[in-house]
Each structure stands twice: as structure tokens, then as C-alpha cells.
Design a protein around this nucleic acid. Structure first.
Length: 1000
DNA sequence: CCCCAACCGTA
DNA sequence: GTACGGTTGGGGG
């Protein structure tokens, strides 16, 4: 070694303990050997070496050694019997790992150094001083304060956990004294972990103050009588000998006899095959691949090294095949290559069915559910990760197990507006056999703020990983498709991370899994799932951040409380996955989940993030017009009523109409009030009263104003200047999406007044809005599932379906058919889809119930297949408790057997409707999933923006409209294929214009 | 501040 | 008769 060389000394023992305590327990897959600390150690060492060999960093070691404690008597123990006496024995799982870690060091081709009778710190001290004397630089890889006494201008420490160099100023900042006084300081303060006594009552602050005043320990002890504070003075005088003993104990020896000279520590090149062999023996798949890649060797060709361990029997039997091979729903051929590219494959680290867990998927699912229901969730085990190195260890652990639950905490419920505040992770040590599995969860705070202390709103809380560093690591984790990320309502996190430049790949969503399994049975929010499956009530958000006036954003929440809340969410999510995943398999619903639910997450996230332009001016002008119209009507209404009242109050309106004015009341609401519904008012208007008509008009205008023209501008995003709705994938029972904040699925279209609102939805300059909607999709689905010859024929021939129905029923020729006849047939057709009742049809058509009953009877005579379908659907619903769409989606009706006839009838109608509405919903979902790849393949830049149940709206460059239209139409019309070969063609109408009204 | 009923916009 | 979400008024705490 010569001047200018650089020696790295790694505190191996420190590494081991930090790796062990920071990491979830990990066991070797094949025999249950605990290897968590080995894994952490190897990952840390690999990272250190790759960073250190990276010459761009500037610190390049020429010499390198890993130093361990030798596990026997040390000279300190001989000197002071109580030294480290309060240390408990190392944990049982750690014992076999000590030897493995030394093996690992050798596999890394690094000197592995230990000397009997001395601690690692003394060896490090000896090497450091020797190297320094030659004129070399030294980096001690440790953050242990016991080593800080060694720091000089040429000797630095490096805290790999925090990725931080520790030099003289850092020691002074931390302890208030320079490194050369660390010995004196420690002599006074002692060290409870090593059982070094020190002087009672003197802590680091006092010690630093005393050393500042008296210079050094000897002077202080000699002049102790001068100390003003009585207690302090007496304690120091009485314990001077303890201080001197402590000094001997904390002073590191620099005269340890060394087996290896400095020159022997020269950093050798990596021996790739040797290291790969070791890592393979440990079954560290990810690190093995990385090392093999970096060293340019073929991992497959290298045999696992033979590693001897003092660890006898195998803890568990061999793993079985993953039990994840469920077939498609009955009668459905799934050869759906067209969309496979859009679905990320999950890694195979899925629950295998162990023999103890039962032999059928259903047994496994049951066992899982029972296991997790019985296990108590321990909130005290959660940790906050506040340094990069610990985060790296967790991420490495996620890589090893291939499975991690993930959740973000932000400042807003709206993913388009939210800023990330932190995120949480949960990891299971054994994803193959959850019996006895330990789940570890952590919260990583990133942007928590200190209280609202001053006018500036308080500062940032210290010791949070810088956002940019965290995002870099998060990107690695989230974008790696080989690591399965599990989230609850992933679309939120997906959208959020997308805004930070991260695209999540390889994921599951417990909310969607529950939706597929239990639509109709229960809600799919995390709190309800947790209570249902884990018997655990998670901490309520409002208990952490408050709500309403006293509520705060999550960045204002204290980190300890935030950790409990956030880590619990990740923990619960992982547990839910463990319960729900095998249920998907057992119920043969994996295909539905993987084809119809999961792939839609990125699609919807992109649609939401694109948003649509809404013209403020148009809305503002409309709002003014509506206000004028409403004001004029109000005057007239007050005139007619003879007094002022709150027109918008149905109660007050009822009193005026049916009390004061004595009009004949029609229907009553379920609370016994007179109904003032539009239907009732229309009926009154038909009898010649003026007021009801004006109320109806007033309601229309105020409705349009309050719900649309006034509300929509408030949803324009401050930065994108567009409106971003939020789609819910799991809030309808049938499989439809829902839209909220704002709801863009109920923008008016029926009346001319209402349609004006659609003109405010516009394309940006140079573009067009393209609207494509399915024609009569639900009736087509009905024709398919009920197999009705006349309907199939009519759709194939492209004739007017309602006219055909009327013609069949009433014997009226289609040509020259009166519009009233067609209207009635149309109402019946819709009635059928809704699970017709004579009561409902009579209501709809304003005819007698008996007449409606006759219509229905006639309809069933003409289309007996429909009655058969309805009866069969009701029967299956009653028998199974659920019905299915043509793609196998299940919709449950737990109350279908209710003894209450109206409850039962309601459930029957819903059960009849669900396969029709739900199959149509599945079809458009399939179209949406295929749409983006199809457009891309055609080289088109069209962006899908909105979905309104049977309609898709795109923004298309002006010049691409003609090419886009046939692609969109074709994807939509072919969306059922090849899973279902529809007996009826699907038809799509498409139009493009500069606003939604004209495009529709 | 929260919740419900009534009403009404969409498919 | 199916499936939703938003606004208002009004009652309760």
C-alpha cells in the first residue's frame, strides 16, 4: 500500500445486525433455512462494491476488507466482567447465518478478517492507523459512534444506510466534540448497550459542555471540585474511577496483531462464477441474475456452490406446483391473443397449495380465509423508514419474495391533484406457505411537515428520504413486472405514480379481486374487506387526520401516527391478497379478473389523466341564460301560487299545490309526502293547470344550471385546464363503470336545452371529438342469450327493432306504422331488459295495469324464448345466489330468496337485468382494453377520453379522423370475439365533430 | 357537519 | 321495471 491508496474497512458485524433487524425474515425456499440477514448482507455489499467501483463517484477503493467480531472472550471482558453483560444472545435464526455471511464475504472475493480476543472495532482501528501512517485514505463503512474516535482528515466513515460520509464536522455536529475527544465523551456518558458505566447523570450534552470547558477528561477529573452544579460535581468526583475504566473500555486498540498485512487487502477483481455459485446456493434469484449480468456470466451454466451450514433438518417439505391454473368459465373458449399483451403476467410466486392446506383450490381458499381471520394484526411491529439504505433493504427483500403490498399517502383524495406524502410497503417472508408467515410493514414518510408553528406554515420534518431518491427506488420497484405489487384500488396509486413519471407494471388489485368474487355480496372498500376477511377494523382516516373543518392533509399528520395508519393499510392489503387470490382460483374467476378487470386499470388511469376540454365561456353564457329563464319562471310561479316559497322544496311545493290550491294529489312518496315528481306534475299540467307546467320547466332550468353549467367549471384542473372525471371500476353490481367528480356519464342529451351543455365539451384546435356508440347493444345481447329467432333476424337484416316488435305484437306493418304504436313496443323492449312488471310498464306508458299485463302476455306469446330466459335466470339466481354474464362475470343476489315478496321480486328483476347489462358492460370493457394497442398498431394518435356505458369518446387529430373511425368501429364491433361468437352482429355508429353534441 | 329523502340527469 | 351520481332541502346532532 502506498500514499494515495484508498482502504475500505467494512464493519461486518454491524452490517449483519442492521441487515437482520431492518429486514423481514426470509427463509431459503427449498429447506426453510433462515437467510434474511445473508440476503441483506449480500445486497448491501453488492451495492457498496458496485457504487465503489463506479469511478464516477470519485471514491474508488484500492484495498478492501470486511471485519467481523470473533465470538469469544475479548480483552475488555477480562478487564471488566460486566462488559456487554446485558447483551442477550443473538436470535436463533441469526446463528446459522454468521457462518454463511463469512462464506458470502469470501464468495465476493474479499478478505474476511477476525482476530481472537479483539473486537472488529479494534481491528478496524489498527488497520486505519497503519494505512493513515502510510499516507493512504481510509473509509470505514459503519455508522457506529464507537468508531468515530478514528475520524481524522484522512479517515472518514460512511453510513451506507443513509448514503452519507461522516467527517470531522459531522462528528462535531452530532456529538458536540471533535473525534479526538469522542473517547473522553464516551467515558463520561457510558454506553448502556455495551454496559459501559460512564458517570451517572452525565449525558452527551453535558459531557460535551464539560469537555469544552475543561479541555479533556483528565483535566476535568482533576478540577472536578470547580464544577458549579452540585449534583454534577458530586457525581463526577464519586465516579472518577468509573470514568477512567470506561475510557479504557471505549478506547480502541491500534496494536492488534494482524494476520493479514495491509498489502494483502488489495481489492481483487470480482470472481463472477464463484459469487453466482454462492448466490444460487442461497436461492437469491434476483441478486443472482444481477451479478451474472454485471459479470457477464451465464447463471444457468453455473452450479450452486456447496455451502455447509450448521443447521440440520429441513423445516418444510418440497413446494408443489402453483395452484393457479383455473380454466375459463364453462362453455367459453378463451384464445384471446388480441389482448394478452395488455395484461401483465404475474410472477409465479403465488400461493402454492401445500398438502397441509388441502388438496383442492376450494380447500386452500377456505384454509387461507380461516388462517387470516384467526391471526391478530400487530400494529406495534410497523416501522418508519427514514434512510435510503433501509429502504434499499426492503426493496431488495421485495425482489427476493417477488411480492409486495404497496400503498401511497397523499394530500388529496383526487389523484390528479394529489401530492405524494409517503408510501407504505408490506412484505411476507414466505409467500408459498402462509402458515406462520410473518408480514412486515413499513411506512416511508417523504413530505411530512412540522406543525403549523409559524406564519410560514412550519418546516419539513427532518430525517425523511429526499423525494427524488425515494422516487428513483420506487421506480425500480414499481416498474419491474417480475415483482408483483398488490394494492387496494390501484388506479389511484397508478395515476399518482404516473404523474411522477412511474408506470406500475406487474400488479394485482384487491378491490378488483373482491369485486369479481363478491359483486352484490358486499362492498369492496378496504375497511369493509378487512372486517369481513380479517376480522380487523383498520384505523379510520378521520381518526388520524380528522375531517371537515378540523381535518388536515396527511402531510400534517405526525409520523408515528401516520406510520400506524399507512403501514396498516399495506399490511391489510397483503393479507387480503393472500385470502382473495386463492378464492379467485377456487371459484374459477381468475380469467374474469385478468381479462376484464385488471387490464382496465392502466386504461382508465390514462383516460382520466387525459381529461377533456370544457369551454368555460359557453357554460358561463348558458348559466346566465338559465338564470334569466328561471327568474322569469319564478315570478310567474309566485303569481300563480299567490305567495313566495322555496320552489326547490318538494315539501313546500306539495303544501302549495295539494294544500293551498287544492289540486288532486297523485302519488305519495314512501315517507307519506305528496309526490311532486315530474310525472305527477305532467299529469296535472295535462288537466289544464298552469303552475305544474312552470314548476317542471323551472326544475329543468335550475337542474341544468346547478348540476352542469355552474358545477362543471369548478372541475377544470388548474394546470391541465381540462376536466378529469374519475371512473369507479367496482361500484356497480353489474360490471358497468361509474363516473364521478364530475359525473360525465349523465351529461344531458334528451332535450334541446340540455344538449347545449354538450356543446361546451370541445376538441382542442386541430382535433375532433369522435364519438362511437353501440346501437341497441342490450337488446342484441338479449337476442343472443335468449336466442330469439325474430330478434336475431331483425338485427341481422338491420331493421328497426322496435318497429319489428310492434309489428309482431300488434300485427301492424312496419311501413307507415303510427309512432304511438312503435313507442309502446319500444317501452316493452326496455321493460324486458329491466325485468318487466305490469306495474312498471303501466307506469311508463300511462296505461292501466291490466292493459300492460295484456301487452306482456302477448309479448311472451310472440317471443316465448324471452319468457324461458327470464324463468331460467330467476331459477339459477335462486339456486346459486348469483347470475353470470356471457363472459363469466358473477353478480350476486343474496336476497333473492327473501320471504318479502316485493324484495324478492325486485331481486328477480335485477337478476334478469344483470346478465344483459353486465354482458354489454363486459363487451365495451374488452373494446377499451384492446383499443389503445389497436390504435397504436395502426399508427394513429387518437386518445380515448370518455366512456358512457355504450359510447366511447376520443380526441383525434383532424387529419386522422377518417383512418381512426374504422379502427374504432372494428374494435368495438368485434369486442366479444373470440371468447363469444355472438349470434347477433354488434353495430357501432361513429361521428366526429368539434364538440360532443354534434359528434354524438 | 353529517345524513337522508326527493328529484332528475344519463345508459 | 335495471344501473348509476349530484344537488337541494331539511332534520338531526
Amino acid at each position: 500500500m502506498k500514499k494515495g491508496d484508498h482502504l475500505f474497512l467494512v464493519d461486518g458485524s454491524g452490517f449483519i445486525f442492521r441487515a437482520f433487524h431492518a429486514l423481514p425474515p426470509l427463509t431459503r425456499k427449498s429447506d426453510g433455512l433462515p437467510v434474511g440477514a445473508v440476503s441483506g448482507f449480500c445486497n448491501m455489499l453488492w451495492k457498496l462494491l458496485t457504487d465503489a467501483r463506479d469511478t464516477s463517484v470519485g471514491v474508488t477503493p484500492s484495498h478492501f476488507a470486511v471485519i467481523f467480531d470473533y465470538s469469544s472472550q475479548t480483552f475488555r471482558k477480562q478487564l471488566y466482567d460486566a462488559y456487554k453483560a446485558n447483551r442477550s444472545a443473538p436470535p436463533e435464526e441469526l446463528i446459522p447465518q454468521f457462518g454463511l455471511i463469512r462464506e458470502a464475504t469470501r464468495a465476493f472475493n474479499l478478505p474476511c478478517i477476525e482476530t481472537e480476543g479483539f473486537e472488529a472495532d479494534d481491528i478496524i482501528a489498527t488497520y486505519a492507523r497503519q494505512a493513515e501512517a502510510i499516507g493512504a485514505d481510509v473509509t470505514i463503512v459503519s455508522s457506529d459512534k464507537d468508531l468515530m474516535q478514528l475520524v481524522t482528515p484522512n479517515v472518514h466513515m460512511y453510513d451506507s444506510m443513509k448514503d452519507k460520509q461522516i467527517g470531522i464536522p459531522d462528528v462535531i455536529e452530532k456529538w458536540g466534540v471533535p473525534p479526538e475527544k469522542m473517547i473522553d465523551l464516551q467515558s463520561l456518558t457510558g454506553d448502556s448497550t455495551d454496559n459501559i458505566p460512564g458517570v451517572p447523570g452525565i449525558g452527551p450534552k453535558t459531557a460535551a459542555q464539560l469537555l469544552e470547558e475543561y479541555g479533556d477528561l483528565d483535566t476535568l477529573l482533576a478540577r472536578a471540585g470547580e464544577i458549579k452544579q452540585q449534583k454534577r460535581r458530586e457525581s463526577i468526583i464519586a465516579n472518577a474511577d468509573l470514568a477512567r475504566l470506561s475510557r479504557t473500555l471505549v478506547t480502541l486498540r491500534t496494536d492488534v496483531p494482524l494476520d493479514m498485512a495491509l498489502d494483502a487487502l488489495v481489492l481483487e477483481p470480482q470472481d463472477g462464477p464463484k459469487l453466482v455459485g454462492f448466490l444460487k446456493a442461497m436461492e437469491f434469484g434476483t441478486l443472482t441474475r444481477r451479478v451474472a449480468d454485471a459479470c457477464g456470466c451465464d447463471a444457468g451454466a453455473i452450479a450452486p456452490a456447496e455451502v455447509k451450514v450448521e443447521w440440520g433438518e429441513s423445516a418444510r417439505g418440497p413446494d408443489l406446483d402453483p395452484g393457479d391454473s383455473d380454466g375459463p368459465p364453462e362453455g367459453i373458449t378463451v384464445v384471446d391473443g388480441a389482448i394478452s399483451g395488455a395484461v401483465e403476467a404475474a410472477p409465479d410466486a403465488l400461493p402454492a397449495q401445500g398438502p397441509h392446506e388441502g388438496t383442492t383450490p376450494a380447500d386452500l381458499a377456505k384454509a387461507r380465509a380461516e388462517l387470516f381471520a384467526a391471526e391478530k394484526i400487530d400494529l406495534s411491529s410497523y416501522v418508519a423508514i427514514r434512510d435510503v439504505a433501509t429502504l434499499d433493504i426492503w426493496i431488495a427483500a421485495a425482489r427476493e419474495t417477488g411480492l409486495v403490498a404497496f400503498d401511497t399517502e397523499t394530500t388529496s383524495i383526487d389523484a390528479m391533484q394529489a401530492d405524494i406524502v409517503g408510501f407504505s410497503l408490506a412484505i411476507a417472508d414466505n409467500t408459498d406457505d402462509p402458515r406462520g408467515t410473518k408480514i412486515r410493514a413499513a411506512y416511508i414518510p417523504l413530505a411530512h411537515k412540522a406543525g403549523t408553528g409559524d406564519l410560514l406554515g412550519g418546516g419539513t420534518v427532518e430525517n425523511q428520504i429526499p423525494l427524488a431518491e425515494a422516487l428513483l427506488r420506487l421506480k425500480d420497484l414499481l416498474e419491474d413486472p417480475s415483482i408483483l405489487k398488490v394494492a387496494q384500488n390501484l388506479k389511484y396509486d397508478y395515476l399518482l405514480m404516473q404523474r411522477y413519471g412511474i408506470v406500475v407494471r406487474g400488479f394485482d388489485d384487491t378491490m378488483l379481486m373482491s369485486y369479481v368474487l363478491d359483486a352484490g355480496n358486499n362492498a369492496h372498500g378496504m375497511d369493509s374487506l378487512s372486517e369481513r376477511w380479517l376480522g380487523h377494523k383498520p384505523i379510520a382516516f378521520k381518526d388520524v387526520a380528522g375531517s371537515g373543518r378540523t381535518g388536515v392533509t396527511f402531510d400534517m399528520v405526525d409520523i408515528d401516527r401516520a406510520t400506524a395508519y399507512a403501514a396498516e393499510d399495506a399490511d391489510v392489503t397483503l393479507r387480503l391478497w393472500m385470502v382473495l387470490k386463492p378464492r379467485l382460483t377456487a371459484q374459477k374467476l381468475t380469467t374474469v379478473y385478468e381479462r376484464l378487470e385488471r387490464p382496465l386499470v392502466p386504461v382508465l388511469a390514462r383516460m382520466e389523466s387525459r381529461g377533456i376540454t370544457v369551454d368555460r365561456q359557453i357554460l358561463s353564457r348558458l348559466s346566465g341564460e338559465l338564470a334569466q329563464g328561471a327568474a322569469a319562471l319564478e315570478d310567474e310561479i309566485y303569481q300563480l301560487a299567490g305567495e313566495k316559497f322555496t320552489i326547490g322544496s318538494p315539501k313546500q311545493l306539495g303544501d302549495i299545490l295539494f294544500g293551498k290550491m287544492g289540486l288532486p294529489g297523485g302519488a305519495k312518496t314512501k315517507t307519506g309526502q305528496w309526490s311532486t315528481s315530474a310525472q305527477v306534475l305532467e299529469d296535472l299540467a295535462a288537466t289544464g293547470h298552469e303552475l305544474p307546467r312552470k314548476i317542471v320547466d323551472w326544475r329543468q332550468l335550475t337542474k341544468l344550471k346547478s348540476t352542469y353549467t355552474d358545477a362543471l367549471p369548478g372541475y377544470i384542473h388548474p394546470e391541465t385546464r381540462r376536466v378529469h372525471t374519475s371512473y369507479s371500476l367496482a361500484s356497480t353490481t353489474t360490471g358497468r363503470l361509474s363516473s364521478s367528480e364530475p359525473n360525465l356519464q349523465n351529461i344531458p342529451v334528451r332535450t334541446a336545452e340540455g344538449r347545449k351543455i354538450r356543446t361546451a365539451f370541445i376538441s382542442t384546435p386541430g382535433n375532433r371529438l369522435l364519438s362511437a356508440d353501440y346501437s341497441q347493444i342490450e337488446l342484441r345481447v338479449l337476442a343472443h342469450v335468449a336466442d330469439i329467432p325474430q330478434l336475431k333476424q331483425a338485427f341481422s337484416d338491420g331493421i328497426d327493432i322496435h318497429a319489428m316488435t310492434a309489428s309482431e305484437m300488434f300485427g301492424v306493418p312496419v311501413a307507415g306504422m303510427p309512432s304511438e304504436v312503435r313507442r309502446r313496443a319500444k317501452a316493452i323492449n326496455f321493460g324486458i331488459i329491466y325485468g318487466i312488471s305490469a306495474f312498471g310498464l303501466a307506469n311508463q306508458l300511462g296505461i292501466e295495469r291490466s292493459e300492460a299485463s295484456d301487452y306482456i302476455k302477448k309479448y311472451f306469446e310472440r317471443f316465448p324464448g324471452i319468457r324461458d330466459y327470464m324463468d331460467a335466470t330467476k331459477a339459477t339466481a335462486r339456486e346459486n345466489g348469483y347470475v353470470e354474464t356471457i363472459f363469466g362475470r358473477r353478480v350476486h343476489y343474496p336476497e333473492i330468496r327473501s320471504s318479502n315478496p316485493s324484495v324478492r321480486a325486485f331481486n328477480e328483476r335485477a337478476a334478469i337485468n344483470a346478465p344483459i347489462q353486465g354482458s354489454a358492460a363486459d363487451i365495451i370493457r374488452r373494446a377499451m382494453i384492446r383499443m389503445e394497442p389497436a390504435l397504436q398498431a395502426a399508427g394513429l394518435s387518437a386518445r380515448m377520453l370518455l366512456q358512457v356505458h355504450d359510447e366511447l369518446i376520443f380526441e383525434v387529430e383532424e387529419g386522422e379522423v377518417d383512418k381512426t373511425m374504422p379502427i374504432v368501429t372494428q374494435i368495438m364491433e368485434g369486442a366479444a370475439m373470440p371468447a363469444i361468437d355472438m349470434k347477433v352482429p354488434l353495430k357501432v355508429d361513429a361521428r366526429a365533430a368539434t364538440n360532443w353534441d354534434e359528434a354524438h
